[in-house]
Amino acid sequence: MKLRVPTLTMIGALCALATLSASQAEVAPTPAASQKLAKALEGRTAGQPVNCIQNIRGQAKMRVIDDWTILFRDQSTIYVQKPRSECVGIEDGKYALVTRKFGSGEICSGDINQLVDVGTGFQAGHCTFGEFVPYRRIK
């Protein structure tokens, strides 16, 4: 049986996609990351995930928990961002997360963010945001 090149390409793409989607599900946070996240969300409860959050002039303050978890604080709400792909190197400060948005004051699910080497300024990869889960204080 002879497979044509487009068929092989499609099979390869599907295998790569399956690997990427499985890799995020298999990654468990370290105990230190779990502890940092629990402390940051203490006294708060999760709301329904949202696709976008406001970030006019960088008002949503970002805090990195690990390469798989980023927090954004907008006033009293903390949004938990679990990127669809790992943001390799942001936890240890080796890379900076750069988002380029023109004409919008929002950060959204599906945004592709560049990872830039802090020392050289060269692009070192990218990661894609997923939905944002809001955590608000329990009243």
Rank of each mutant, 00 (worst) to 15 (best):
W68T: 03
P6W: 07
V118N: 08
R4K: 14
D111N: 06
P134I: 00
G93C: 05
L3A: 11
K82F: 07
S76H: 14
F129M: 10
Q81V: 07
R137G: 13
I53E: 00
M62R: 11
L97V: 06
S34V: 08
M62Y: 06
I56Q: 09
E26M: 15
I112M: 14
G125P: 01
Q114C: 07
T99L: 15
G110P: 04
R44I: 01
I78C: 01
S76Q: 09
I112Q: 10
L3G: 09
T9P: 07
S21T: 10
C127M: 00
L41C: 01
N113G: 01
M10D: 15
V133I: 06
I65C: 01
Q81L: 12
T77I: 01
P31N: 04
Y135A: 00
A18W: 12
L97G: 03
E86F: 08
E26Y: 15
G47T: 05
E26S: 14
R44F: 04
L97F: 08
S21W: 12
A18C: 09
M1F: 14
R84T: 09
I90E: 03
A38Y: 07
T128D: 06
V50C: 03
Q24R: 14
V133K: 01
I70V: 14
P29C: 10
Q123F: 08
A46Y: 06
E91W: 09
L8G: 07
I112N: 14
Q123L: 08
G12I: 05
I90R: 05
R73E: 12
S21Y: 12
S23Y: 14
E42G: 07
S109D: 11
K94Q: 12
L14T: 08
A46V: 05
